[in-house]
Simulated assay, not measured.
Amino acid sequence: MKIEDFWADIDIYHVSFEVKKEVDNLIGLRMVNKTIVLPSGMTEEEVISIVTKRFSEVKTVQAVDYWEEALLLKE
């Protein structure tokens, strides 16, 4: 029995990005900070691409900080 049989490698990132926010017909930007889990081995450019595509109204990605590697239990 191997560890790969039951666990998948993942990486944990902390990302900061600005999103467009509209309140009372005024448009502004709001900073969002999130911790996200992605498959292991992604480049910073791939992480930025995922953030801009998978969150709404992203204007700029301010930071991508690699936090830690981890294991995800396979089903």
Rank of each mutant, 00 (worst) to 15 (best):
A70C: 01
A63R: 14
V51Q: 00
A8G: 11
E22V: 10
Q62N: 01
D9S: 14
Y13T: 08
V58M: 05
A70F: 01
T35S: 14
E46W: 05
E75N: 09
W7V: 15
D9T: 15
E45G: 02
N25H: 13
F55C: 00
A8K: 13
K59P: 05
L73Q: 12
M42K: 08
K34R: 13
H14C: 15
E4D: 14
N25M: 09
T52L: 08
M1G: 11
I12S: 12
T35C: 04
F55K: 07
W67G: 12
L72K: 10
D24S: 15
W67S: 00
M1F: 14
Q62P: 00
T60E: 00
D5G: 09
K20H: 12
G41F: 03
R30S: 09
F55S: 07
L73C: 07
H14P: 11
V58P: 10
L26C: 09
V64D: 02
D24R: 15
S56P: 06
Y13S: 06
N33L: 03
M42C: 03
A70R: 01
T52E: 05
Y66T: 01
T52F: 04
R54I: 00
T52W: 01
Y13P: 06
K53C: 07
V61N: 03
F6Y: 14
I10A: 09
I48F: 07
T43C: 10
N33F: 04
M31R: 15
F17C: 03
F17G: 09
E75R: 02
D9Q: 15
E45L: 12
R54Q: 01
W67M: 10
V23C: 12
V64C: 02
T52N: 04
F17H: 08
W67T: 01
